[in-house]
Design a protein around this nucleic acid. Structure first.
Lengths: 204, 204, 204, 204
DNA sequence: GATGAATGAGCCTTCATTCAT
DNA sequence: AATGAATGAAGGCTCATTCAT
């Protein structure tokens, strides 16, 4: 049996290295030489596992989006189905998960966002993700707001989330999780009918 | 055959060409050959007038930010000093000026934003701009809200503006100006004490 | 006016360099670095003038085939239309022109021939050339031989020409022009009806 | 799972695979990965059995030349020693043996021929083969022709054989065995004194 | 013996910059 | 002042070879 070259080890290794390098020098300046050196492997391995630099970037993007998606899903699963206000905060909170607001991840996310404007594959990933966020929000909001209002509030929350991320990417200190929560909670408090904050209990 | 033309003509020519090319192929793929060809000039002229590709990008960024800044300044100048709600809407409106939300400009703006994370000069420009927006907002808000609240609302408005831009950059349809205004007006309506909406007219 | 970079100089310069390098190390081992170094230019220039290595090889092949074709055409033009035997010798002689049997050219020709088996563009060039040789021969032979015989003799002469070239490519001494002529003249003498050797002179 | 198999099985397996791959993509584009995959073995085995890609190519060349040589030898052994014309046709026929004119073999042969110009080991093989062909022909021809003439005719036959092969390599239909025989038989008929065609019987 | 994951030198190409004109 | 031909460093990718298993 040959040397055990475990894809299960190599792939995450290279993806983490990619995120780290994009954080350091940006997407434009990131080279396969930098990424492979940091991962402690040879340059050739990137083509071997990912079919080229492009494939590695794509895979990296997918991992970030999946972590985001999983984080939200998990929080929703742990929230009572009737606690609508809580569920919306779960969605928002998933976007500001400590793993997500890691400065490295935020920078990588923005780099991909900018790049996706001219890359059909990345763009598709981006839009799927964007639509999922909106649809999660709308689903909950429609339960307590009229349709038109629900859509408008969903769009507002989504914009607010992205705006906070965007500003966090540029800020030397990254995203200030507390401030982010304050801003968005203010918004929620202003729009969500008070009684829904009770969750299921409020029904009694 | 050398073109007869003054620097005052060449500069905007090249900057518009830069914006157009970034819109078409992205910042990464934009080459001086593309930009100069579209501007109808030689490649050498870019180094001549801007000291290199980097200098051209820098100048382009400055022009975009200046247009933004001028637009806001102009709107503020046309708004009564006592119409606080109006002044805030002027600031927001300046960010969604028809010139600014041109799809080309939005894409260029995002491309630069992403790039500025790893480019000290662009980053400085970006932060100056960002701080000016915040300080304009805070200046007005402090007149009607307690300091802490004013800062929080200012941060919220700024995030909302950037979030709407960001989502607009990716959307195939660009920024939906009406929806953007709805979202942000909702926000303002929720936070600004009702009486301030009157402005100088002071119906009292 | 800019530096005069004369394509008229660069192109032949690079093509000669290509032939020389293929002679030295073969088509497989020929790199753009070698070719450009020998031509005394930078590597980038090859993509600039020929659109890449492939384009340079294609252009080189075309030049060799054109020289061959021109040589034959010129000899035919200098031969009396009625001197059929003489015209056939002109065609054969054109293939063994001193320029053509230069060892460098012979090696390059064989290298391209081998390569053309897997390169549609080169293959097309090759076949056009091959068919022209056959059609020249057949045109003359049909004037003195029945059709079937003319075709068979044309095929024989063509095979003999290529065979002598092929063996010359491998031989350390290149093509022995005299021996080549002897072999082929033997062949012609055996097949061409004696009287045709007179050509126009026979009319007296 | 290692394959159980003896070197005696592996070698021909890999050599046939090499010929097939060269036929498909050419010598330049043939990689050890392609060859080993088609043979159903690992890449490492090529270095193991042949000392590298180079060794495999060398071995493949030797096999092709040996098949050629064996074919001729066998035909000669089955031909009466006094049937000189028959012996020469045996030599020619051996070169157009059905195994030899297989399109795959013809392409591989030409690929190697081109390559041998810059590869001392292949070149030596090539020349040994070439000389054997000439010496076989001369040996027979000297029995019926004066020395100088015998050498010239031998060179002519050899060139004709190679020329037909060469043209066949490029042709989409491969070598036309019948036409090849016609061409060469024409040649023989023209040069060999008629009486020699009787062979031993003629002597009576 | 046999495997095939991993290596890394070397290739072709791109492109910002230079500079003779 | 303006040109654009030429440069050459740097990039991503390929692939023969190695070696732990």
């Amino acid at each position: 049996m040959p040397k055990v070259g475990m894809p299960e080890i190599r792939r995450p290794q290279l993806i983490n290295s990619t995120i780290a390098i994009i954080d350091e020098v940006g997407l434009q300046a990131a080279t396969v030489a930098m990424i492979s050196k940091r991962a402690g492997v040879s340059t050739g391995i990137i083509s071997h596992y990912f079919g080229g630099k492009y494939g590695l970037l794509d895979a990296t993007m997918r991992v970030i989006l999946k972590q985001l998606s999983d984080g939200i899903r998990e929080r929703l699963d742990n929230t009572d189905h009737e606690d609508i206000h809580g569920r919306i905060k779960a969605i928002v909170g998933g976007n500001f998960d400590s793993q997500q607001i890691d400065q490295k991840v935020v920078k990588t996310w923005l780099a991909f966002w900018a790049h996706s404007m001219h890359d059909p594959l990345l763009r598709r990933l981006q839009r799927v993700n964007e639509k999922r966020l909106l649809s999660h929000l709308k689903y909950e909001l429609k339960r307590i707001l009229p349709l038109g209002k629900a859509e408008r509030v969903a769009a507002g929350i989504a914009a607010l989330i992205d705006g906070v991320w965007l500003r966090g990417a540029l800020s030397p200190d990254g995203i200030d999780s507390e401030q982010a929560n304050n801003i968005i909670n203010d918004y929620l408090d202003a729009y969500l009918p008070a009684q829904t904050k009770r969750g299921k209990a409020g029904k009694s």
